[in-house]
């Protein structure tokens, strides 16, 4: 039985390549839902980003619309210029609240809401980036009993974000980029396709 039902991932500078690599390593029957906040400008357009990642991944990649359900086995992307939040009851919410740490979507906003809603059933993953967004969110995930993964800064395009996360939150695992997908698969297990709800 797996206890982790949701993986939240945050990435900034260099994140697109890193996300592509993580997603390409996840099996088609991956056992949890994934939600991603990737910092960017309004470019690339949401659909372009989702398509680029979908080509690398065996899992469906979708840009989130307000109140979309959280679907196991799907990769849910925060749209540009909106915060992505996890609500209790298995749905997402979006908001146009002010930027946090100069960012919208903000990784802290995603992670903290996921910690509140999923407690010990969430895994937080901090990837490459040049700012400290996500550190406070990862700390909240750990306080609520969730699992914290940080990309080994030595393998990150930009080390500042993983370093800030380790300094503020610590981590349950610090692993090389190439090891993240296998670790997530161990943590979240695999689900036979028929058991996955695919509306």
């Amino acid at each position: 039985m797996t206890t982790h039902e949701l993986v939240v991932m945050g990435a900034s500078w260099g994140g697109l390549a890193a996300l592509g690599l993580v997603l390409s390593g996840l099996p088609r029957d991956f056992g949890a839902a994934i939600a991603v906040a990737q910092h960017r400008g309004v470019e690339p357009a949401d659909a372009v980003l989702a398509d680029a990642l979908a080509r690398k991944s065996a899992l469906p990649v979708r840009e989130v619309h307000d109140k979309d359900p959280i679907v196991p086995g799907w990769v849910h992307m925060a749209p540009s210029d909106y915060h992505l939040l996890v609500e209790r009851g298995g749905t997402f919410a979006l908001s146009t609240d002010p930027r946090e740490q100069y960012s919208r979507p903000s990784i802290d906003v995603l992670f903290e809401s996921a910690a509140d809603a999923y407690a010990s059933r969430v895994v937080g993953v901090i990837l490459t980036g040049a700012n400290p967004d996500g550190a406070a969110g990862l700390a909240r995930i750990r306080r609520r009993g969730g699992f914290a993964v940080v990309q080994d800064p030595a393998t990150a395009d930009r080390a500042a974000m993983p370093e800030a996360a380790m300094a503020r939150a610590g981590a349950d695992e610090v692993v090389a980029l190439s090891e993240i997908a296998p670790l997530l698969t161990r943590l979240c297990g695999r689900v036979p396709a028929t058991e996955q709800a695919r509306p």
């Binding site: 939040l85 609500e87 919410a93 908001s95 609240d97 906003v109 809401s113 509140d116």
Partner: peptide, 9 residues
């Protein structure tokens, strides 16, 4: 109201 952003405020 959705709780996530309400809580932050």
């Amino acid at each position: 109201y959705s709780r996530g952003s309400l809580r932050r405020r």
